[in-house]
Design a protein around this nucleic acid. Structure first.
Length: 387
DNA sequence: TATGCCGGGGA
DNA sequence: TCCCCGGCATA
C-alpha cells in the first residue's frame, strides 16, 4: 500500500534521526512530492497545520462565485418582477445545489460516514485516517481524525511486528477484516491475541460410520446425518433414542497449526479418522464385545494425525442411561479417543496394566537375577508370578 | 524413581 | 527362537 506513497512512508518516520533526510521528506511536505498523493496529504495537513484547507477553500470559493454570479445576474439583467423571481428561484436552486455539493465534499462532513460504511481503502485516503501514521518499521497504522490535531500522537503501543501479519492482508482481505475503526483499534492495539485464540479452535463433528467420515459443523447436523443415512430413520430427533451420539465424534481443529483444517478432513478422506471398524461388527443385539478393541483402535491410531487436532471426549459420556446397551461401545470409543490423543506409538497397543503382584525382580532382587523367570530376565511379562 | 513389560533387533 | 534392551506406562 505504500507503493505510490513511498515518500509519505518515509516521511512517517517520526523518531528516526534521519527524519527529513531519508528521502528528503518532512511531514507536511508530502503533497508536493507525489502527484498521486496530493489528496491524502492535503487532508492530512488540513487539521494539523491549517495550511492546506483545500476542501473548505473550495467551498468558500464556490459560495463566493455564487454570490458574484448572483450579483452579476441581478445587476446586469433588467427583468420584470416575475422574471426576476423566477431567476431567484433558479438561483436558490443553484445555491442549494452548490451548498449541498460543497457540504458533500467537505471532509468535516464526510469523515463520520467514512468510519462506518467505507472500506479501508477509502478511509485513510479520504481523510478518515492519515498515512502519516505509517510507522518507521513499515507497517500501517492509523489514527482517528480527532487525533490528527496532535502531530506528535505516538504510534500505538503494540509492536508493529505482531501487528503486521494480521493487518496487511486486511487491505485486500476477507470481509471479516473490515472492522470498524473502534473495533479495529481495540482489536489491533489492545488485545489482539485473545481474539485470535478465540477463533483458532474450530469444533467440528465427524461421522464415525465406516467409510463415511462426514464432517459437519453442528451436532444436530451430524446427528441428523447419522439418523437418516446410517440408521435409516427418517423421523426427527424426537423419535431418536440418542444412539447416533455414538456414531460421531467431536473434534477441535486448531486452525493455527492446521493450514486448512477442513481440507484435511475431507468427508471422503478415510486416512484422517477412519471410522471404527467395530461399528459394523456390532453384535446382533447392538452391543459390542471387547474383542473389537484391537481391530478398532489399531487403524485409528495408526492413521490419525493426533498432532493436528484434538478429540473432544466429553460427549462420549453424555449418553443417558438408556444407552446402557451400547455402553460397551461407549467405553470402546472412549478408549479410541484416548488413543487418538496419544502419540501414535502408544496407539494400537492395548498394553495391559502393570501387574500388582510381586514379580521376579521384586522377589529375588536384581542381585539374584539368575533366579528370575525367563520372561522377567527378558523384560517380558512375568510367567512365574502371573497376575 | 522403580517397576512391569511391549516392541524390536541381533545372534 | 533365544536373548537382550530401549523406551513407555504406571505405581
Amino acid at each position: 500500500m505504500c507503493f505510490s506513497l513511498q515518500s509519505t512512508c518515509n516521511g512517517g518516520q517520526r523518531d528516526g534521526p534521519t527524519q527529513g533526510q531519508n528521502g528528503g521528506v518532512q511531514r507536511g511536505e508530502a503533497p508536493s512530492l507525489s502527484p498521486e498523493s496530493t489528496e491524502e496529504p492535503r487532508v492530512l495537513e488540513h487539521k494539523r497545520t491549517g495550511r492546506a484547507l483545500e476542501p473548505e477553500k473550495d467551498h468558500t470559493r464556490s459560495v463566493s462565485l455564487l454570490e458574484q454570479k448572483r450579483k452579476v445576474v441581478s445587476s446586469s439583467i433588467d427583468v420584470p418582477q416575475a422574471r426576476k423571481s423566477e431567476e431567484e428561484v433558479d438561483m436558490d436552486k443553484v445555491t442549494a445545489a452548490m451548498v449541498l455539493t460543497s457540504l458533500s465534499t467537505s471532509p468535516l462532513v464526510r469523515s463520520p460516514p467514512v468510519k462506518v460504511s467505507e472500506g479501508l481503502n477509502g478511509s485513510w485516503k479520504d481523510g478518515g485516517f492519515t498515512p502519516s501514521s505509517y510507522s518507521s518499521s513499515g507497517y500501517w497504522s492509523w489514527s482517528a481524525p480527532s487525533d490528527q490535531s496532535n502531530p506528535s500522537t505516538p504510534s500505538p503501543p503494540l509492536s508493529a511486528d505482531s501487528f503486521k501479519p494480521f493487518r496487511m492482508p486486511s487491505l485486500s482481505g476477507p470481509p471479516d477484516d473490515n472492522i470498524d475503526e473502534h473495533d479495529g483499534n481495540s482489536l489491533l492495539f489492545d488485545e489482539p491475541i485473545p481474539r485470535k485464540r478465540k477463533n483458532s479452535m474450530k469444533v467440528m463433528f465427524k461421522c464415525l460410520w465406516k467409510n463415511c467420515g462426514k464432517v459437519l459443523s453442528t451436532a444436530a447436523g451430524i446427528q441428523r446425518h447419522i439418523r437418516t443415512v446410517h440408521l435409516g430413520r427418517n423421523c426427527d430427533s424426537e423419535c431418536s433414542d440418542g444412539e447416533e451420539d455414538f456414531y460421531y465424534t467431536e473434534i477441535k481443529l486448531n486452525t493455527d497449526s492446521v493450514a486448512d483444517g477442513l481440507s484435511s478432513l475431507s468427508p471422503v478422506s478415510p486416512s484422517v479418522l477412519s471410522p471404527p471398524l467395530g461399528l459394523d461388527q456390532r453384535q446382533p443385539d447392538g452391543t459390542n464385545g471387547a474383542k473389537n478393541e484391537n481391530s478398532t483402535t489399531t487403524p485409528l491410531s495408526r492413521s490419525a494425525p493426533s498432532a493436528l487436532y484434538l478429540v473432544h471426549t466429553d460427549h462420549a459420556y453424555q449418553a443417558s442411561p438408556t444407552h446402557s446397551r451400547t455402553q460397551g461401545f461407549g467405553e470402546q470409543r472412549s478408549q479410541t479417543i484416548a488413543v487418538l490423543s496419544s502419540p501414535p506409538r502408544a496407539a494400537g497397543s492395548l498394553r495391559k496394566s502393570r501387574g500388582e503382584g510381586k514379580k521376579c525382580r521384586k522377589v529375588y532382587g536384581m542381585e539374584n537375577r539368575d533366579m528370575w523367570c525367563t520372561a522377567c530376565r527378558w523384560k517380558k511379562a512375568c510367567q512365574r508370578f502371573v497376575d
